[in-house]
Design a binder for these strands. Structure first.
Lengths: 225, 225, 225, 225
DNA sequence: TCATAAGCGAGACGGTACGTCTGGTCTTTCA
DNA sequence: TGAAAGACCAGACGTACCGTCTCGCTTATGA
């Protein structure tokens, strides 16, 4: 579904002093990189996307706001989308650090339906968080049209969250609450994708009641019993 | 799923000489509008998006290719996305005219599962159609970020198709193949949205086997029986 | 000097219903021409040049202000300068009609110096008249660069005035106040051109004292010895 | 008369690497300015004015011909006229450098009339020089209508030449060939302005014979009695 | 320890496209 | 059939950014 929890994954120490760049940046000496500039660029990028929107956010604008030369951006990133993607990942990491790991885990009370409903409700809340909305939409939109960025977006932002859903479903399967033989990656899409689509494409409202219904329909199917 | 068949709906003659503009263009005298220019602009826009991609498609480029003054575009449309949306709608209408009405209907053989699988398979095929891919992605991406356009996109492109799915589900419900009390608009998202998301966000492959599975899971649920 | 008196010439009945166009306009039937539109165009042109200056005066602006279609201007004139030239000539004619013929004549009191000083002083006053300044400068400037218009400008606006100066000098010559053999057309330039240049090119102030001095210097040169 | 010799003045080395701009351009860092671009722009501007005329010379055209971005022109100049003025001044300077200083001085043989006739004859020749004609007329015309540019035009192009004439007249005055008390700045206009007007306004031919006559008429007026 | 070479802020540069404005032409509708 | 209206093709306007390219100036080793 729609990247509920940016990088809620365990993240085995991405070493902030030398984080692997999102896409391979070749030449410069990363050891001498200015962390001050980097953080300023992240903040400027997120702020501008929030204030004026993604299309009106420009590299020049980010550089000016960050008090940085344009070349410093072009040296380390290949595009506006690339900057924003890293800035957003960085934001997610910082929020996670402040929140604690398990805050983003899917609970396992033994009641799959309740656990999934709870998790989807908090996803809905997150999608409404104004800090996330603008950059997240921007990145999603860019990913629709730019497959390379889209795949990075999915791998870095969506995948960890989806994996948690799959894990929870596996536990349910082992507990006999989900049929054997079900493809869990497809199964989770039954409730995750509809929410994602409503959010991405404005095809309808996304409320707690809606996600509750999704979980019910998905878990029990549409057929009469 | 995602706008399989642009305007496959019955369309009770929208009078091609005076089609309601997608977004209200107030000022100029529509009666004096040059249809030659309009068609040339549609063709140029679709061709350019296909050839160089949406971001490198420019209004100047469209005007030049269409042999039209820039002002003629700005007079009638408010943005590149707006032009492309109308061009795409027009393309859909022209294809529908050539195909015949029932080509886009969802069959009703009495077997919901089979009918939905058949329809989703053809949706998959359509999503691979190179004439649609580029402009359709571009519009979807724009709609993610631009709510106004997004809503028009949904209303004009997605909605007619979604309505057909809802209708087929209603027939199934009346035939006792779908539980009473189910919200059909939500129900159809169980199989339509996952395909949409895989296509939009490159979260996974979209094959006939995949959509068949979706229909099965959605109709029967995940729970053991 | 510089077109002091626009068309103070006798003007043998320019028949307002069919006045010969300044420069040959070929095709249309002048007999059916709308005098209302013509006058409105004249007024709009002069007003706009006065208000926003010549470069920002546009044919579209004139047409809009005159409540006239653009084609009505293009039908009867070949350029913006052409419109303004005729408008200015028309203005001159109307002012002359209100003033009476002899108002613009050069007096002959028997004292050439006094008569010329008087005339040049009133020329200076005229050059400062805000109704004339803007359009007159605009036409002069256009004439510098556009020889065809320049010659028309000279013939219609400057020549009549220059001829009066030549006439007055001839009378002085016959009265023995100017040397025999002097080329009167050159002679008059001695006092007329310096004023013209100061006004046109901002090479210096143009005051009554200045023109008085010019007449003195020049007449001394022309006097018999 | 009108700007015979652009900047024939002594010019004590204006340091070509940092020449004072004609009109103060405040903002950008002049030290980093590209001299290559600057010269290319000068040449393109002069060439275009010569080839297609001033009104059809566009900033885009100059930029394209000079192989320069438009912004590079807008960065350093405020208008087309401004570019041309500096280009023309630069041309004058380069020609002066190739010609040697005294080539433009007014000779002093002791015979004022002869010296002035000689100088005016060479001014006439210069006015016919096709390298000067087009840009010079264009600038003069612009200056008629744009007082700010006009004053710069006079100060940078006309004034040096006029000063030489005044100097020569002063020498004549000291030699007793010109009356005491004569205002030399006005005196020189007696022969300079008529030529200027004939050239500017096409009021008549400008020949060597004509300027000889002017000098005769004027000097008679200025002679002691 | 200090040169030396990188990253850095700054911003000029050659470009492209923007959205607007006007020039001239052409067409429609009316009187 | 002249005129008002205004859509049309064309293309220049002046602005905004793009991505590249110097400039000095830190600044952090490594000889």
């Amino acid at each position: 579904m729609a990247a509920q929890k940016p990088t809620r994954s365990p993240r085995p120490a991405p070493a902030p002093a030398a984080p692997a760049p999102a896409a391979g940046k070749p030449h410069p000496d990363a050891a001498r990189r200015s962390q001050r500039s980097r953080q300023a660029i992240y903040e400027a990028a997120l702020a501008l996307v929030g204030e004026v929107g993604y299309p009106k956010t420009t590299i020049e604008g980010i550089a000016a706001r960050a008090g940085v030369g344009k070349q410093t951006i072009y040296r380390w990133w290949s595009s506006k989308a690339d900057v924003l993607l890293e800035a957003f990942l960085d934001l997610g990491e910082r929020l996670v650090e402040n929140a604690g790991e398990e805050a983003y885990a899917i609970p396992d009370t033994g009641d799959v339906a309740a656990d999934l409903k709870f998790t989807l409700r908090s996803t809905v809340d997150e999608l409404r968080d104004p800090r996330f909305e603008a950059p997240y939409r921007a990145l999603a939109a860019e990913g629709v049209v730019n497959e390379q960025l889209g795949r990075t977006f999915v791998a870095r932002l969506l995948e960890p969250s989806l994996q948690l859903h799959a894990d929870r479903l596996r536990a349910a399967q082992e507990a006999g609450q989900v049929r054997q033989g079900i493809d869990l990656r497809i199964a989770l899409e039954l409730f995750v994708s509809p929410l994602a689509q409503r959010w991405l494409q404005h095809t309808g409202p996304y409320t707690h009641a809606y996600t509750d219904t999704l979980v019910d329909y998905a878990l029990h199917g549409l057929a009469p019993r």
